[in-house]
Design a protein around this nucleic acid. Structure first.
Length: 567
RNA sequence: GCCCCCGUAGCUCAGCGGAUAGAGCGCCGGCCUCCGGAGCCGGGUGCGCAGGUUCGAGUCCUGCCGGGGGCACCA
């Protein structure tokens, strides 16, 4: 049993002895150090049913607990309206240090909450009609960090990118390409960014239509496919540079060319959910909570093609019923909000429990430059590409910047601030802590100081408030990881990493590890504290996909391109 | 009109129903004979409004106000 379980059980037993029913007792961390190390609020919540003042219950409980012998507990006190606070000796934190070191980078702060559930995280999935924008990068970092965190919690995770390599947007891209190559104006619904012109100059494919007349459909399609293939490989390398690696790049064209659409429609047909209306094939999604039924196949006068939703449902049928994922997490931008209800309804129509499909919507990321909004549009070509931001900042700063706040929060990135203060982005603060730790190791080796085995080191020397603060952070990591996974909220881990870094910097400032005035015993204990902090930092940073470097470059001269993020 | 997200410090954002709401940036002052000062310490301002639930609400519920996004036989 962990210390927390022991304390909770002790409280629970005393409450029973006091005549209350058996109940789980949860302990919480007080916000302030003078309130002790752990606290319980049971007296507050029991006061009403007991008809007794909360402080009275609390003090009886505290008295009883004080008569017991509990490991590490030096005192139980009543405070405020009826909190029962446990004050612990530093030994419990020394035990945390040992636990961190014993488990190490691979095993500390693992949790089994996933129970081997097979989960797919689909994210970014931007159409290959242009470079990724900054918002794609934010959701890319999010999806990848989420996948890493879920993996550490015992989920079996696959990362997937759904490639929209078919349909009207690809044709529009092809038409734009051919028009630019001919020297014509880009058509109304076309793409006019500089990247299209570059591709047009390079394109060798056919354009058999006579000058002045519209290009042949097959030439448009060929041009579109070629261009989107090129763009997709650029997207791939941009994501790779951020340390994002997919297990599967899933082609929409394969869905459409294979029999998946027909099979999916057959499922709906058998369920009696299809009908015709005005020549279109409709799915009765309203039976599953949608606001209106949806078109699966357009009427002949609209081209008779299957809709995007039909393809998407065939795709989700593949995820759940062919590949057999227990759970699917789709990470979309908020501009896809309108799809969610029909997608979930369609999944339900497939006979899949729709709670197995989670859709996480990331709110918009907007850019400003010195306070002035930067409008972005792929079609107009006026936007800041993700790869440009990465080139300017480096992969790790880009990732951490995008993982600071919740995806529920629409954020504004001020390019002027980012440019002028790139050396002050949150990542440096955290990475510097790790680099300092590495520096301590280098100095230790230079001075020929051996690290004795942890079992021979007297951790009882670690009593400085700065030392204990580092250990308190480390103690909290397993729960932070668990909560970050459960809430699908990697930014909680970002907050934790910053807290640990802050406490480490404070320790570093006030507590010398080696040198005059530091006894050899204290040096040994502190070296192990530093090692534990390093483990914590590396775990946190690796789950976020941010490098933990051994050296920092010169300020302002980050060799960002070389800083490939390790996974 | 309906649906989703958000209103917390001058700005960008954290904040698990608990005690005196926190960081970073910016501003003002301190701190290096010693492991990297990209650091440490101090200084002040804030939960959009109104109800409700609760022993206790920034956090949950309702309404209002304000901002963003979405409501196709587009993808």
């Amino acid at each position: 049993m962990s210390l927390l379980e022991v304390l909770g059980e002790a409280v629970s037993q005393e409450l029973q002895a006091m005549g209350f029913g058996r109940r789980e007792v949860r302990l919480e961390r007080p916000a302030r150090a003078e309130h002790g190390d752990w606290a319980t609020t049971v007296a507050l919540s029991l006061a009403k049913e007991a008809g007794r003042p909360p402080r009275e219950i609390a003090s009886e409980l505290a008295d009883r607990l004080n008569r017991r012998v509990l490991d590490h507990v030096v005192g139980v006190e009543v405070a405020g309206p009826g909190f029962v606070n446990f004050r612990l000796g530093p030994g419990w934190l020394h035990a945390v240090l040992e636990e961190v070191v014993d488990a190490g980078d691979d095993d500390y702060a693992r949790c089994g909450s996933g129970q081997g559930e097979r989960v797919q995280v689909e994210f970014v999935s931007a159409n290959p009609t242009g470079p990724l924008h900054v918002g794609n990068g934010w959701l890319g970092s999010y999806g990848d960090a989420l996948a890493r965190i879920l993996d550490r919690c015992g989920y079996v995770v696959e990362r997937e990118y759904y490639v929209n390599d078919t349909g009207g947007q690809i044709r529009a891209l092809g038409r734009s390409l051919l028009a630019l190559r001919r020297g014509d104006d880009v058509p109304e619904q076309g793409y006019r960014g500089a990247y299209v012109a570059e591709l047009a100059a390079e394109y060798q494919g056919p354009d058999a239509a006579s000058p002045g007349s519209a290009p042949l459909e097959e030439d448009v399609l060929a041009a579109g496919r070629w261009a989107s293939g090129r763009i997709l490989s650029q997207i791939q390398s941009t994501l790779e540079s951020l340390g994002i690696h997919y297990d599967t790049w899933y082609s929409q064209a394969k869905i459409e060319e294979g029999g998946a659409l027909g099979e999916t429609m057959a499922v709906f047909e058998r369920a009696g959910l299809l009908y015709e209306e005005d020549g279109a094939l409709m799915l009765a999604t309203t039976e599953f909570g949608d606001v209106r039924d949806r078109v699966m196949r357009k009427s002949a006068d609209k081209g008779g093609d299957y809709t995007y939703l039909a393809g998407d449902l065939a795709y989700h049928r593949d995820k759940f019923l062919v590949r057999g994922f227990d759970r699917v997490i789709d990470v979309f931008g908020a501009d896809h909000h309108g799809q969610v209800a029909s997608l979930k309804a369609g999944v339900a129509a497939l006979g899949v429990d729709p709670s197995r499909l989670e859709v996480r919507l990331g709110q918009m990321v907007s850019l400003s430059d010195g306070g002035e909004a930067v409008k972005m549009s792929k079609r107009s070509g006026n936007f800041v590409a993700l790869h440009e931001l990465i080139e300017e900042l480096g992969p790790s700063p880009t990732r951490l910047l995008s993982l600071v706040s919740s995806i529920d929060q629409a954020t504004t990135v001020d390019l002027a601030v980012v440019r002028s203060q790139s050396a002050e982005s949150p990542v440096f603060y955290v990475q510097y802590a790790h680099a300092r730790i590495s520096a301590i190791g280098r100095v230790r080796r230079e001075r020929g100081i051996e690290m004795r085995p942890l079992s021979e080191v007297n951790l009882g020397q670690l009593v400085h408030e700065r030392e204990l603060a580092v250990l308190r952070s480390l103690e909290a990591l397993p729960e932070v990881v668990r909560v970050a996974a459960a809430e699908r909220a990697p930014h909680r881990l970002t907050a934790w990493v910053r807290e640990l870094a802050s406490r480490f910097h404070g320790f570093y400032h006030d507590c010398r590890v080696m040198g005059e005035g530091v006894s050899p015993d204290l040096t040994q204990a502190r070296l192990w504290l530093v090692e534990a902090a390093a483990i914590g930092l590396r775990i946190g940073l690796s789950l976020l996909g941010v490098e933990a470097p051994e050296h920092m470059g010169n300020p302002g001269q980050q060799d960002s391109a070389a800083a490939e993020v390790s996974s």
